[in-house]
Amino acid sequence: MRATFTDAWLAYRLRWKRRRILLRIWRNRKQIERRSDRTKQIMPGAILAFSTVRNEMLRLPHFLDYYRKLGVAHFLIVDNASTDGTADFLTKQSDVSLWTTSHSYKLSRFGMDWLGWLQWQYGSGHWCLTVDADELLVYPQSDNRDLQALTAHLDSQGLPTFGALMLDMYPQGPLTNVAYTHRQDPVTALGWFDGSGYRHRVHPVFGNQWIQGGVRDRVFFQADPDRAPSLNKTPLVKWHWRNVYVTSTHHMLPRRLNQVFDWPSKTKMTGALLHTKFLPDIAARSSEELDRQQHFENSALYTGYYRNLIAGPDLWTDRSVAYKGWQQLVELGLITPGDWR
């Protein structure tokens, strides 16, 4: 009885939270300025990608190629005051619509307000992929079946969301020694990851799994594991105008969208986001972060973390696993094909 009451109260509070976020998205809608609008190209049923970027010239060419090949029809990107020509590059792409802003990334809930406004306008009824430029989605069969096939399967199963685990990729040797050339697949430069050691628990509020662990947890957050980055994400969603992302793409509202897993032991299909954060620009980015203090939740707490990153540590151990493809991730139990064969 009491549990029912608590749950109803939580549901009520979260409904208001969602409305507040929607209102906030609407209030902040003028923070972004239209730079090139090609949204007329969007056909019904097209798969859309949403992203906020800042100085991503290193990753963007490969990023766009990668997702084009996976079947993303249109990219809706917000550029947060890049200085390396990112905006010009994106304007030239025929399938990218670009908005720019110089407002605070942190105050816009890490870009979620800006993207939320774009999703609200253009996302309804489409499968929407919300990823950062350093995230590459892999899923079972991703080398020979595109997102159209994946989303059609999810539709037929009546699943509105697709969950993915963030997998931090790192090089062998110090971070400062990575050799990476333009348009190269970042995974060839950052070929390693932690094969296990991901901690799972059910998030008390959002009802999804809260996953922490991986290399950043192992190396940088031993002293304060509670602060270690969350690795559970829900990047692919059949959008409805009511939906909102709460913190980055980790949690969503309404809560049922977070149910990317079956209770108790059935296994829905999930994927992974290969996180290519540790490319050679990591030191420069980290020192910039230190100046801007724009990172998550508690910037002060992350100071030590960024200092460590600037020093270019070696994250590799002889227990690291070399990335070989989605089959390997299935074998390791990091992703699962569900019943998609």
Binding site: G163, L165, I211, F261, D262, W263, P264, T267, T270
Partner: peptide, 8 residues
């Protein structure tokens, strides 16, 4: 125990 398998 993973993203989509978390038995009670």
């Amino acid at each position: 125990y993973m993203h989509s398998r978390f038995p009670n």
